[in-house]
């Protein structure tokens, strides 16, 4: 599926606009990201009622590449300081408000991020199928400090997905802050993007807690998922994009 250019469906940089302030305030608590339990969701006042659309996103990549760190970065959790292998699957949720360009409609995307430790996946057969069950998007991770992880990307992509899968695929290069030690050049990235038609995002460094550092990736995820659902809806039974979750009170 063709990749959607940033800003073609949703207002880019909406988090900077005053209009979005009330939406983003719902995912903050004491200037940090608010932590939601499974029974909770942001609730807007009636005049700003916004639907929540839910998607499952799987983080794939070698051990130590930074899956747990990326999940924490996106969800605004404490980042792991040292590498502890993840001993199973862990999920965390990210609520992300967006505004649709055409209709002006405002929505909360809810990304359920699935992070599975590589060694656990190797030792237990049920992990990978479980991560792929009902999955809507996969983030393929490599690390800028580990050329092997970059070279393994195409392998990884064809190993765990079929071209026919209805999936949004994005690639994320981690540890971009360690550019002094980088093993992967800009031209490597450009070539990869051309061959695969998949954009590569760069993350790394300390988190300041601002939305700027994650908005590019989250917006791209939202736009492509929305687009995928619209395409699907127009070719098959009409259905609402995303999975509208149960109404939950906070």
């Amino acid at each position: 599926m063709a990749y959607i250019a940033a800003g073609s469906i949703m207002v880019s940089d909406w988090h900077r606009s005053p209009e979005s302030r009330e939406f983003f305030s719902k995912i903050l608590h004491n200037k940090k990201r608010r932590k939601f339990g499974l029974l909770e969701a942001p609730v807007m006042p009636p005049h700003l009622k916004a639907d929540i659309v839910r998607y499952k996103v799987f983080l794939s990549g070698k051990s130590g590449v930074g899956k747990t760190a990326l999940a924490a970065r996106l969800a605004g959790l404490d980042m792991p300081k040292i590498h502890y292998e993840t001993t199973g699957m862990e999920t965390c949720g990210v609520f992300w408000p967006v505004k649709l360009r055409e209709s002006g409609r405002m929505l909360f995307f809810h990304f359920q991020l699935w992070d599975c430790g590589e060694s656990a996946m190797r030792r237990f057969d049920h992990m990978l199928p479980s991560c792929k069950e009902h999955v809507d998007a996969i983030l393929f991770l490599f690390s800028f400090t580990d050329r092997g992880s970059f070279e393994d990307l195409s392998n990884q992509m064809s190993r765990i997905t079929e071209p026919s899968d209805r999936l949004v695929r994005l690639v994320v290069g981690t540890k971009f802050d360690l550019f002094m030690h980088t093993d992967v050049t800009e031209s490597d990235i450009t070539r990869f993007e051309e061959v695969w038609g998949v954009p590569v995002f760069r993350v790394g460094g300390d988190v300041s807690g601002g939305f700027g550092e994650i908005s590019l990736l989250l917006n791209a995820l939202a736009e492509n998922l929305w687009h995928q659902d619209c395409m699907h809806a127009s070719t098959s039974v009409p259905s609402y994009p995303g999975h509208i979750g149960p109404e939950i009170i906070v």
Binding site: G37, E40, G88, E90, T91, G93
Partner: peptide, 29 residues
């Protein structure tokens, strides 16, 4: 902030050689 997990566990006394799955769900923080 972590909402759920699915971890293989062996019970040291109850099931030391067959893994079970521990599923956990953070209902509220």
């Amino acid at each position: 902030g972590k909402t759920s997990c699915d971890c293989p566990v062996f019970l040291p006394q109850g099931s030391p050689n067959v893994a079970l799955r521990l599923l956990c769900f953070q209902l509220l923080p």
